[in-house]
Design a protein around this nucleic acid. Structure first.
Length: 275
DNA sequence: CCGCGGGCCTGCGCGC
DNA sequence: TGCGCGCAGGCCCGCG
C-alpha cells in the first residue's frame, strides 16, 4: 500500500479543501472492501463538517464536528482523489464524498484491501484497528533503546519485525528496505542479533527515508497518486527497492542488488555494504 | 505467547 | 495473439 509517506501525502492533499468543508452526501457503490463499509456511514457523516485530518500509522482519520471520525485505510491499491473533469469512472470507485464546496472525493481501490469505518472520536484510542499500533516513527518519545528492547527477545528477521505495525507504525515493504540499506543492516538479520549501536543508526535511517519520501510526495508504482492526480516521485530515489541486478548506488560500493523472498514478500538489499 | 503461511482481491507483465 | 503464472505498496486469522 500506500505506506506512511503516501498516506501523509494524501492527508496533506485532502486538508487543503476538506478542512472545514461540510460533507453533504456519501454514496457507497461497493460496500464490500476488506470488511463491509458500515451501514451507518452515510447517516453518521452526512451534514457534518470535517474539523481535522489526522494520520495514525497508515490510517487516515477524518474528525467530524458531530463527534464521529471516519477511518480510512488504502490497503494495497487504494487512493483518494478529487474528482476533476475529464473524469473517467471506474468500477473500482467504491465510495464518493461530496462537500458543500462542490467537491467530490473518490475512494478508488481495485483490490479492495482497503477499508472505511466510522467510530465516535472519543473511542478511537480503544478502536480494535488502532489500539495495538506501535509508536509513530517521528514520535519524540521513540528512542533507539525502545526499538532495542522490542527486538532483543524476538527471533524473527528484522525485516518482518518492522513490517509489524505493533512494533513501529507506518512502515511497509519499500521504506523498510530503503531504511535498512541506509543503515547497512541486512533484512535477514535476526532481531535478537541487532546491537544497541545498530538501533541507534536504524531509527535515524527510518526517519531520514520517510522524510525524503514525504518531500517527494511518496512513491507511485501503479495505483497510487496524489489527491490532485500528480504522481509521487520517490521511486526515482530508490536505492534498493525493485533494483534486482542493478549496481548498488552507495558511493564507492561495488555491490549488485539482490532479491530474496521473506515471508512471501520480496526483499532487496546489497550483499556488499549491508551486514 | 510466538512465528509462519495462507487468504483476501484485481491487474499487469512476462515467458511460452 | 492468448494464456497461465507470479507478483504487487497490507493486514488478519488460524494453525502448530
Amino acid at each position: 500500500m500506500p505506506e506512511l509517506p503516501e498516506v501523509e501525502t494524501t492527508r496533506r492533499g485532502l486538508e487543503t479543501f476538506l478542512k472545514n468543508a461540510r460533507i453533504e452526501k456519501v454514496t457507497v457503490h461497493q460496500a464490500m472492501l476488506r470488511r463491509a463499509v458500515p451501514k451507518a456511514l452515510k447517516k453518521s457523516v452526512e451534514g457534518a463538517k470535517v474539523k481535522k485530518l489526522e494520520r495514525r500509522a497508515k490510517y487516515l482519520l477524518l474528525h467530524l464536528d458531530n463527534g464521529q471520525t471516519i477511518i480510512l485505510h488504502l490497503g494495497m491499491s487504494g487512493r483518494l482523489f478529487k474528482k476533476t473533469e475529464p473524469y473517467t469512472p471506474s468500477q473500482h470507485d467504491h465510495v464518493v464524498f461530496e462537500t458543500d464546496k462542490g467537491d467530490a472525493i473518490i475512494f478508488r481501490d481495485p483490490r479492495r484491501f482497503g477499508l472505511i469505518d466510522i467510530a465516535p472520536t472519543k473511542d478511537l484510542k480503544n478502536h480494535p484497528l488502532l489500539k495495538q499500533i506501535g509508536p509513530e516513527p517521528f514520535d519524540n518519545k521513540l528512542a533507539p533503546q525502545i526499538l532495542y528492547d522490542k527486538f532483543k527477545n524476538k527471533k524473527t528477521p528484522v525485516k518482518a519485525a518492522l513490517l509489524d505495525q505493533h512494533m513501529i507504525a507506518g512502515l511497509g515493504n519499500i521504506y523498510i528496505l530503503e531504511a535498512l540499506h541506509d543503515c547497512r543492516i541486512l533484512p535477514t538479520r535476526l532481531c535478537n542479533q541487532i546491537t544497541p549501536a545498530e538501533c541507534k543508526k536504524l531509527l535515524p535511517s527510518i526517519r531520514k527515508i520517510l522524510t525524503k519520501a514525504i518531500e517527494w510526495g511518496g512513491s507511485s508504482l501503479r495505483d497510487y497518486a496524489h489527491v490532485d492526480g500528480q504522481l509521487g516521485k520517490f521511486k526515482h530515489h530508490f536505492m534498493v527497492y525493485d533494483r534486482t541486478g542493478e549496481k548498488c548506488l552507495r558511493k564507492s560500493c561495488t555491490g549488485t542488488i539482490k532479491r530474496i523472498a521473506q515471508g512471501g514478500r520480496s526483499s532487496f538489499f546489497c550483499p556488499v555494504c549491508q551486514h
